[in-house]
């Protein structure tokens, strides 16, 4: 029974060394090169640091999405979930601040991780136990999370307590040996994700469930359990992104994380993960997130594109990147 899954894994393994798999990284290199040629301020240390740090949120959430998508599902609720978790965390921190002081940040972060995991679990159970198409199920929870954050904030914003702003600020603005902290956190999440996906039984089962759920089921893989766990991982990633996000602006609003789900899915697919499941590229996902952020940065830095057409140019670049991918293969 297990031989089927190991066979799939073995058949996949050598492919990782094909140069076609370097596609997302070549695309990233190309976009960066264009940036260097087009604008002198692109390559400055501050700009690069800004862009890489900014892409951390999408990258972290997209690591979770890589699991969900490669196991054959889809999660549209991540943007709203992120706003909801952010709101819960800020409210918890503000509530605990009088008794715990700055330690309220840790307590709040812990609560955030638990809430994120529970949100993911809810998504997973609706999809697997409820046997509802992931697209529809998470479209539903997307509306629920978005409405909850709007309700919690009365349509305004939920700001973090002033006393917590300064101790919390370094989580987004600080650095370790010159590397911005959100980037360090992203690296840890990506390494953990890569280990789980490429080196453990769970990762192989994820691929099996995504490439052919019937075959996987006959091979003794509990597809429902694998997929539910993928949603929980997604929820945890959303919570980690929320932990890095709060110190940036210090508030949650009904527009927090709006449309991030589409950016996340785009990053995952540009990175070489198949949207229909069965093949995952964690590092490609990171490259995808960086490509999106660099393109947006270049649109502002260059004066070539009218402000009305920025979104159109971004769309064209994404489609071109995907086409290049197809032809290289």
């Amino acid at each position: 029974m297990t031989s089927t899954t190991t066979n799939i894994a073995r058949a996949e393994a050598p492919r990782r060394f094909r140069w076609a798999d370097a596609g997302p990284f070549l695309a990233l290199a190309l976009v960066v090169l264009i940036g260097v040629v087009m604008n002198s301020s692109f390559m400055t240390g501050t700009n690069i640091a800004n862009v890489v740090t900014r892409s951390a949120f999408i990258a972290i959430i997209a690591v979770g999405a890589t699991f969900v998508i490669s196991s054959g599902c889809l999660d549209l609720s991540v943007g709203s979930m992120m706003a909801f978790v952010t709101g819960i965390m800020i409210l918890t921190m503000n509530r605990l601040e009088p008794s715990l002081g700055a330690n309220a940040i840790f307590a709040g972060a812990l609560v955030g991780l638990v809430v994120g995991a529970l949100c993911g679990l809810a998504n997973g159970l609706i999809v697997t136990l409820g046997k509802i198409e992931p697209f529809i199920a998470t479209l539903g929870t997307m509306g629920i999370f978005r409405a909850l954050i709007t309700w919690m904030s009365d349509g305004g914003s939920i700001p973090i307590d002033r006393a917590l702003r300064d101790p919390y600020r370094p989580v987004y603005f600080g650095n370790v040996l010159g590397v911005p902290l959100p980037v360090v956190i992203t690296l840890i999440v990506v390494l953990a994700g890569a280990f789980l996906l490429y080196r453990t039984k769970y990762g192989r089962r994820c691929m099996a469930a995504g490439s052919n759920s019937e075959v996987a089921r006959f091979s003794g893989v509990s597809v429902a359990r694998v997929r539910t766990l993928a949603f929980v991982i997604q929820g945890l990633c959303v919570a980690i992104a929320a932990i890095c996000y709060i110190p940036r602006l210090g508030a949650a609003t009904p527009t927090t994380g709006q449309l991030w789900e589409l950016q996340v899915i785009t990053a995952v697919v540009i990175g070489g993960t198949l949207l229909r499941g069965g093949k995952a590229r964690i590092w490609g996902t990171v490259a995808g997130a960086l490509i999106l952020e660099v393109i947006a940065n270049l649109m502002v830095l260059s004066n070539m594109v009218s402000e009305y057409l920025v979104a159109a140019v971004q769309g064209v670049i994404i489609i071109l990147a995907m086409l290049a991918h197809r032809f290289i293969r």
């Binding site: 709007t150 349509g155 305004g156 009904p254 527009t255």
Partner: peptide, 9 residues
């Protein structure tokens, strides 16, 4: 509906 700050107001 209250979807952002101003409409919330």
């Amino acid at each position: 509906a209250a979807t952002h700050g101003w409409t919330g107001g």
